[in-house]
């Protein structure tokens, strides 16, 4: 591995200043599970790694009881999310996505912020945050700004972050009652997978427990960036959600996708999986909503 100097700032401001000092010879590092692999493989060779792990507060995970907003620090690890009862109960789509990223060892190190900034089309972590209308808070040399997670990605390995900007947290707006959400990573094996295709669905229904008031259909590995199948979402909104309607939405989502052939899977099969899994995840959302309604 090419030698580098590790810088360990104590605040976000200090981190940004360090980047300003070293510019393109520096890289930020969160959990390190992607950055270290890239340095080892020679895909990047920074002289300075700015280690964000020691900055207090960046790994804070909490729900604001007053506003209902969920705040996820960028340095929150996948394992912290996976093991959080709050996430498991109230945000099943996050749980589904993060609990099968890499291995437990990787989840103990890898962070949700790192997963987003790595900006691979297969980033499991991005899908639920897009589905939940999450917003990313960016702090950089020119101050703070907010960007919807869905707008974070430009192309593989590239985000809208400008040099020196740090993703510090993601906020999820308060969830509307009667929300259901689910994610499936489809791959050849049960663990240690990068998804052949990743499908996240979020549905909000009316008091009749049937009419869809909001739909999110988010796809990973279906294009150069994680994407939303907006036409398919529109097909659901305002309609009573049935298996047939979900099948139709799945078909539309498959058409909207920009799947390709790759080592991991073939485009036609990826489309089929979108078609099938949009329906299955949609039905799971309804199950979750109905279950909660029964409990209430």
């Amino acid at each position: 591995m090419k030698p580098f100097t590790l810088l360990t700032p104590a605040t976000v401001e200090e981190a940004v200043a360090l980047f300003g000092q070293h510019k393109e010879t520096a890289r930020y590092m969160a959990g390190g599970t992607d950055v270290i692999v890239k340095v080892k493989e020679g895909w990047m060779g920074p002289d300075y790694l700015i280690n964000l792990k020691k900055i207090p507060g960046l790994n804070d995970l909490h729900k604001n009881e007053a506003t209902g907003e969920l705040s996820i620090g960028a340095l929150v690890t996948h394992a912290m999310l996976e093991q959080s009862l709050l996430i498991r109960n109230a945000y099943p789509i996050i749980y589904d996505a993060v609990s099968n990223i890499g291995s437990l060892q990787v989840r103990n190190m890898g962070t949700i912020g790192g997963n987003l900034i790595n900006a691979v089309p297969s980033a499991d972590g991005a899908i639920p945050l897009i589905a939940l209308d999450g917003t990313a808070l960016l702090v950089g040399p020119d101050g703070e700004r907010s960007v919807m997670v869905k707008d974070l990605f430009v192309k593989p390995y590239e985000t809208v972050l400008t040099p020196g900007e740090i993703l510090t947290r993601i906020t999820i707006p308060a969830q509307v009652p009667r929300t259901g959400s689910a994610y499936i990573k489809f791959g050849r094996r049960a663990a240690m997978e990068l998804p052949l295709i990743g499908i996240g669905v979020l549905l909000v229904v009316d008091e009749d427990l049937s009419t869809c008031t909001r739909a999110r259909i988010c796809l990973g590995v279906a294009g150069p960036t994680p994407l939303r199948a907006v036409k398919a979402e529109q097909m659901l909104e305002g309609q009573p959600v049935t298996s047939d309607l979900l099948t139709g939405a799945g078909k539309l989502a498959a058409e909207e996708s920009q799947v390709r052939d790759s080592v991991r899977g073939q485009a036609w099969h990826r489309k089929e999986m979108i078609r099938v899994q949009v329906r299955r995840m949609g039905l799971r959302c309804l199950d979750i909503i109905n279950q909660k309604a029964r409990q209430a």
Binding site: T8, T33, N51, L104, Q105
Partner: peptide, 25 residues
């Protein structure tokens, strides 16, 4: 590369891949 687990050690009660974990940390 953190894909086989042979290098697993425990740091503060958590299993991690020591091949990806910086010694400085």
């Amino acid at each position: 590369n953190g894909e086989c687990g042979a290098c697993t050690v425990i740091v503060d009660q958590l299993a991690v891949n020591s091949c990806l974990y910086l010694a400085a940390d």
